[in-house]
Design a protein around this nucleic acid. Structure first.
Length: 599
RNA sequence: GACCCCGUAGCUCAGUUGGAUAGAGCGAGUGCCUUCUAAGCACUAGGUCACAGGUUCGAAUCCUGUCGGGGUCGCCA
């Protein structure tokens, strides 16, 4: 909420803050526009508070409309009691006093179009040049503690291709939030407390007997048949000899389970490392039970009056055959916006999975996170409301922000043909298969070159193509090209010297400069929307403009970066190239894609 | 039955959270290109933003409804 309170004053003298070190042209100008609106309000001797939240400063779609457009006159017309065009005149008059403003137009229903002085751009580039690869970052988040939980796959085997997207998305979002000033923790929730981990243990036990020389034959259905459990059996055999064979299941199960969990998590961490993902917290569900936190959490909720005994209505539509009305211990989630109340205890009195979910949320909240971000598969759409309800019940309504981002499915293709995946044992495509085939950079970029909630087609043939059709290649190639010219320049002894960015005047160059100026704003809006894909699209566009400028150098040699007969321009263009490279490198770093020096 | 997501050019998708004449790539058509790094460059055509209402200065974007596609819906994890 940004509002101004002002009192009537006869004369209004305003001082604009110059463009400052935040290097976000648009947020700086938004402040100036608000200052101008404030001054106009004082001229009109308005009383009271005016909401300036809806005032924006953005790049106009049409470059001919100027450098910055604002809707101020239109959104404030009601509050000021003046027609938009009249108000626009008044605000424009104030804005034209700004030292960086060349002139101000009013267009259409009341847009104020600001044309900046040419001197602004060299200053911006100078600043970007000195900031280097950190240009684009901001303090938007103000150090807010945010927790990004992603992957959290069950530790029953290696990650499969379905985990790719959430893994990459979560990682990129975490990095985006880090660059925009949030204090981010990357976290993985290990579901190591349910019945399925016992199944893993039993499967591993078979492999143990196999490792001792026994013939185990076909793995019974209901157990995990994958070869990846063989090493677990081997390690158990090495550590225990045949000692476990003499024990009852109740005795060997915990031993085998612990070992199997540890080794499965190592496997998963390796898979993630192949995608350059390293989460700093791996949180065990079992630890919540062992520490008594699950029970404590339910006790707390009960004390707060959010728990009751009752039964839930059967699902509408198709009622399952085995439906029985049962009394359970329920959390009153509907009081916090959920569609139905959620069971904490099963009818036999044991904890539900949801109970540990609640305890886990409470644990995060107690660790001080103000924003809990969950990256889930699209089949978890039903989780959104219950996660919000839990946070509201535990922390108090509105105390903690819950953000759930759902990632749609990835469909694999091989030269246009869908890759068939049988659910039968061993025939699923693993994450490792994909990464090994096309490399982490391609996987990461392609997973982010789509809105998260839109389904994604991944064609092995297309993503390794070297053409404009392949955005990964296109963007990396742009970065490599900048490096290549800088290398050539260095080889010719052309490095160093002070650039004079006022020499950059070609429309193609100006277009790139404007796009670079938008970068900090782009990062902020992507962070607010939790949409890292915007960074990928931005890079694709920047790369496109850069390649176009490059190609103009063919027809118009005076536009080339290295001009042997014009040292001053060369030095300037090399510095310009460096700034382009910084932005590409910064964006690629957020996406977790290696900026290639040569290709 | 309820809830969530999606529906934009022939195809695959963006669309700066409500802005101005809705954009890009591929495909199609036309013309160029022997290179500061080759895998190209420029231009043209292509649209009832699923449909119907509503909100307001202004809607692809927000609200309601309809149609179509996908997902989910008590003890599994």
């Amino acid at each position: 909420m940004t509002s101004i309170r002002f009192s009537a004053r006869a004369t209004v003298r305003i001082e604009f803050k110059g463009l400052d070190c935040s290097m976000n042209l648009f947020s700086d100008f938004l402040a100036s526009i608000r200052t101008a609106a404030n001054a106009v309000a004082a001229d009109y001797a308005l009383q009271g508070t005016i909401d300036l939240d809806k005032v924006t400063a953005e790049p106009p779609r049409e470059p001919t409309h100027g450098d910055i457009a604002t809707n101020a006159a239109m959104v404030l017309t009601k509050a000021f009691g003046k027609p938009p065009r009249v108000l626009a005149e008044a605000i424009a008059a104030k804005l034209s006093e700004h030292t960086d403003v060349a002139h101000v137009d009013i267009a259409g229903p009341g847009f104020i179009n600001i044309r900046l002085r040419q001197t602004v751009w060299p200053r911006l580039l100078d600043a970007a040049l000195s900031l280097g690869e950190s240009y684009g970052g901001s303090r938007l988040g103000g150090g807010l503690k945010a927790n990004v939980e992603y992957v959290s796959a069950n530790p029953t085997g290696p990650l499969h291709v379905g985990h790719c997207r959430g893994a990459v998305f979560g990682d990129a979002l975490a990095q985006l939030l880090t660059e925009t000033g949030f204090d981010v923790t990357r976290e993985y929730y290990i579901n190591d407390a349910g019945a399925q981990v016992d199944t893993v243990a039993r499967s591993a036990f078979l492999r143990y007997r196999e490792a001792l020389g026994e013939t185990i034959g076909e793995i019974p259905s209901g157990l995990y048949p994958g070869d990846y459990l063989k090493p677990v059996g081997a390690v158990l055999a090495r550590e225990h000899g045949d000692g476990l064979l003499a024990l009852d299941e109740a005795q060997w199960l915990p031993i085998v389970r612990t070992k199997a969990m540890a080794m499965m998590m190592d496997l998963i961490r390796d898979d993630l490392a192949a995608l350059n993902i390293r989460q700093e917290v791996f949180f065990s569900e079992k630890s919540l039970h062992d520490s008594g936190e699950v029970a404590d959490t339910i006790a707390d909720l009960r004390a707060a009056g959010h728990v009751y005994q009752g039964s839930l209505p059967p699902p509408k539509g198709e009622v399952p055959d085995d439906w029985e009305d049962r009394e359970q211990t329920l959390f009153r989630a509907t009081a916090f916006g959920d569609d139905m109340d959620r069971p904490l205890l099963k009818s036999d009195g044991s904890f539900t999975y949801f109970a540990s979910d609640v305890a886990y949320s409470r644990n995060k909240i107690r660790r001080g996170y103000k924003e809990l971000i969950y990256i889930l598969g699209a089949d978890h759409g039903g989780y959104v409301k219950r996660l919000e309800a839990v946070a509201a019940a535990v922390a108090g309504p509105g105390a903690v922000k819950v953000v759930v981002r759902l990632c749609q499915l990835v469909k694999l293709y091989r030269a246009g043909e869908p890759v068939r995946m049988s659910k039968r044992a061993g025939e699923f495509v693993t994450l490792r298969d994909v990464v090994d085939e096309v490399g982490p950079d391609v996987v990461r970029f392609m997973m982010l070159f789509r809105k998260n909630e839109a389904p994604l087609d991944f064609d092995f043939a297309k993503v390794t193509e070297q053409s404009k059709d392949n955005p990964v290649f296109y963007v990396q190639y742009a970065h490599a090209r900048t490096c290549s010219v800088l290398r050539n320049a260095e080889a010719e002894g052309l490095s160093g010297g002070k650039p004079d960015f006022a020499l950059l005047t070609d429309p193609a160059e100006m277009g790139i400069i404007r796009r670079i100026a938008e970068y900090p704003r782009l990062l902020e809006s992507a962070a607010i929307a939790h949409e890292p894909h915007r960074v990928a699209f931005y890079l694709y566009e920047l790369a496109g403009e850069f390649h176009a400028l490059w190609n103009k150098g063919k027809e118009s040699p005076q536009l080339r970066f290295i001009l042997k007969e014009d040292l001053e321009t060369t030095i300037t263009r090399l510095a310009f190239l460096r700034v382009i490279r910084y932005v590409l490198a910064n964006g690629l770093r957020i996406l977790g894609v290696r900026p290639a020096d040569e290709m």
